[in-house]
């Protein structure tokens, strides 16, 4: 009972909690645009593709600075999006296969580089494998500050470009018609996805970062029909699961943060599926039962009326 109070009094833990909260918000916000644009699995591909970028950045610099990883992962992510786009536009490969090919080949390359770094045994490499699943407890304050700044920039960009992204999500043809630079905006969404992935690498890890981009957005979609509300809710769900995951991981049992965060997220999703108004299972059952009883009542009155009519005759 007193454990978590103690956790809050530790300044480092407070920073980490703040960082994962901001990360959850960022992932949830950009994730909802990706979901509405039917590119939910893009986040999956990009987070796997970030691994070789991170490894190359480490091999070139020899240091574990999150700024350099950001650059490496961003370059790898842009290469991945370009590869997927090239394949779908210029060959008979379908988008889903293109996504899977880029994801697995980049990840394979990442594993090759990672094992090479581990075998070469340059003392500083320990902990690089934590990037696969994330270990929030291993973050130091400067990492958290970088992560928080990245997430804040991400949220700010989405807030500023809200109108543009909204139009792009619902009617890209119209957006092009009224003169928005849709190609540029499209690439900006991809870039922001890459940024979110990079911010999450240390806390959640590359393998499960996709969940933070998809699950909060899908959960939020259950509760509302309005984009603004959905983005806010999705950010909120992301923040909640970030806090829950980090908290459980930090309170001692040394489980990796990423999977715990994802499970917290999935729990919120489960609640949404069951309990959301209008779209949830319970609400649907209630609506159906009400409709059925109204129908029964109406047919009953109808029957009575015809009977009475027959008697009058």
């Amino acid at each position: 009972m007193f454990d978590w109070l103690q956790l809050l009094s530790d300044p480092n833990a407070r920073w980490i909690l703040l960082g994962s909260m901001l990360l959850g918000i960022g992932g949830g916000v950009i994730g909802s645009f990706a979901y509405l644009r039917k590119q939910a699995l893009m986040g999956d591909a990009l987070s796997h593709a970030a691994l070789p970028g991170v490894c190359i950045a480490f091999m070139l610099s020899g240091s574990k600075s999150i700024g350099l990883f950001l650059i490496g992962a961003a370059v790898a992510g842009v290469a991945a999006t370009y590869g997927i786009g090239f394949m779908t536009r210029h060959s008979r490969i379908k988008p889903d296969a293109a996504l899977a090919i880029v994801l697995s080949v980049f990840f394979g390359l990442g594993i090759v580089l990672l094992t090479r770094i581990q075998h070469s045994g340059s003392g500083n490499q320990s902990g690089l494998d934590k990037f696969l699943f994330g270990q929030a407890a291993s973050m130091v304050r400067s990492d958290v500050i970088t992560m928080a700044v990245i997430s804040a920039v991400l949220i700010g960009a989405c807030a500023l470009l809200f109108k543009e992204f909204k139009l792009l999500s619902f009617d890209p043809g119209f957006a092009r018609g009224v003169g928005y630079p849709t190609v540029l905006l499209d690439q900006l969404v991809m870039l922001l996805l890459v940024v979110a992935v990079v911010a999450g690498i240390q806390a959640v890890g590359v393998v499960l970062m996709a969940a933070l981009l998809i699950t909060p957005a899908v959960s939020a979609r259950y509760w509302t029909e309005k984009l603004g509300v959905m983005v806010v809710l999705s950010g909120l769900f992301g923040a909640l699961s970030g806090i829950a995951g980090t908290w459980i991981s930090a309170s001692g049992n040394n489980l990796p943060t990423g999977p715990l965060t994802v499970l917290a997220c999935t729990a919120i999703f489960g609640i949404s599926v069951v309990a959301a108004p209008k779209r949830g299972i319970v609400a649907k059952r209630v609506i159906r039962a009400m409709a059925r009883s109204r129908l029964a009542r109406e047919s009953e009155t109808e029957r009575l009326r015809t009977e009475r009519g027959e008697q009058a005759l």
């Binding site: 979901y35 039917k38 939910a40 699995l41 699943f133 393998v207 499960l208 994802v262 499970l263």
Partner: peptide, 19 residues
């Protein structure tokens, strides 16, 4: 959406496995 449902399901199950 079908791709989003793929994403939700496999990340959740994979997380269970890793834990």
């Amino acid at each position: 959406q079908s791709d989003a449902s793929i994403g939700v399901v496999f990340t959740a199950l994979f997380a269970v496995g890793v834990i």
